[in-house]
Design a protein around this nucleic acid. Structure first.
Lengths: 221, 221
DNA sequence: AACCGGCTCACCCGGGCGGGGGAGCGCTCA
DNA sequence: TGAGCGCTCCCCCGCCCGGGTGAGCCGGTT
């Protein structure tokens, strides 16, 4: 059976971002970019003209922001799936975009394959995508971020597991219970984590986990 | 790097559904079904024994429903991703499942490829899946946030200031230094904050601050 | 065989943290 | 003029946390 191609419209005010997205999506033969727009108004028009399966929509744009544009597109054609593209964490935008009917969120720094997969998921399935990264707050510190990830890489699997629970507010005794370990073992792992991350105490390790995106606030959403 | 196989545990009281899911997942070499269970109790046991990456969990089952089983599984191993399988989508327990920590929802009538894709997506751990039918209910995530804000409102200005520094990883002595206070005063404020937020220790208060959006921005980490 | 790294657990010790009190001060409002 | 509240500071106490050090087990490397 021949899979129908996923028809996509790109809406972003930056040509660089558009061409980047186009190149990434081009790598998947199942995806076809049928139109592009550089602001919200043009995006609504393009969606009306081409009736795409998926719209990749930037949040902040001149003339008409992504939220309002999403609303208008879905008002005209509710079958359209709008993927909101954010540079940083959307935070307050998230709920607004959801209410406007967004099918998911994408970070611009996501891996190409992640982006393609997100498009496929919302196009084919009856699903809404939430990268947990959306809930995280990230400053413009890219190098610092790379540094964070490098430090995280130095952790062993066990240490990462311990860090995950530590950042969830668990005490050493609780971590021991949940991982079926002795408290002393947990203490060793915690000490190693603190040493490798350069954290003074478990609190700073938890903050590190949050800021580097290692820990996400899944509980709320 | 080669992706390790995704280890899956199936929990459903109907053998027909289990064998159907197993057959579908079998088509993906990256997915391996390591165990099956026919009710919640057996599901929790199976999850504890095999520590799978993903658990496909039916909602309504004898002896222990999917929600409670999900809770117990995540309590023991938070790293597990639980995909709740529903016959219909707009049920009330969807929100409960979310609060229990479910990583996503799956409709039994979904396409095989959709099911495999959902497993892959949640296994990677960076996304939460929602059927669009329950998107409306996600708006109800607001009460949770509203609840957070109500608790934050009960804090005095001084307490909020202390919470901000506390969530930045500062010790009581450091907070005292930055606010020109005595350590004992800071301890009092911290104790009040813990009491008002219902937090067990400063770590959980910090997590509260992060998840409620109170601790956005700043923090020179 | 010798070595190394990861995982496990053990003991000692100092310090910060959290809970329990109490107390004085200034402000606002009834 | 009290009552209440917020802010400030104090003491005692128990516990958990973090640092230091050591040790045994196992699997892979040299």
């Amino acid at each position: 059976m021949t899979a129908p191609t996923i028809r996509v419209v790109l809406v972003d005010d930056e040509p660089l971002v558009r061409s980047g997205l186009r190149a990434i999506l081009l790598a998947d033969p199942a995806i076809e970019v049928v139109a592009e727009a550089d602001d919200g108004v043009a995006g609504v028009a393009a969606a009306a003209e081409h009736t795409p399966d998926v719209v990749l929509m930037d949040v902040r744009m001149p003339s008409l922001d992504g939220i309002a544009a999403t609303e208008r597109i879905l008002q005209r054609n509710p079958a359209t799936r709008v993927l909101v593209v954010t540079t940083f964490s959307a935070d307050d935008y998230v709920l607004d975009a959801l209410r406007a009917g967004a099918a998911g969120f994408l970070l611009k720094r996501a891996d190409p394959e992640q982006i393609r997969e997100a498009v496929r998921v919302v196009a084919r399935g009856d699903a809404v995508l939430f990268p947990t990264a959306v809930r995280r707050l990230v400053g413009d510190a890219r190098p610092q971020r790379a540094h964070h990830e490098k430090l995280l890489d130095r952790l062993t699997d066990r240490e990462r597991e311990v860090l995950r629970l530590l950042a969830a507010g668990r005490s050493n005794a609780e971590i021991a219970g949940e991982l079926w370990l002795g408290v002393e073992t947990v203490k060793t792992h915690v000490a190693n984590v603190l040493g490798k991350l350069g954290a003074r105490d478990r609190m700073q390790a938890a903050i590190f986990a949050y800021e580097s995106g290692f820990s996400d606030a899944v509980s709320g959403l």
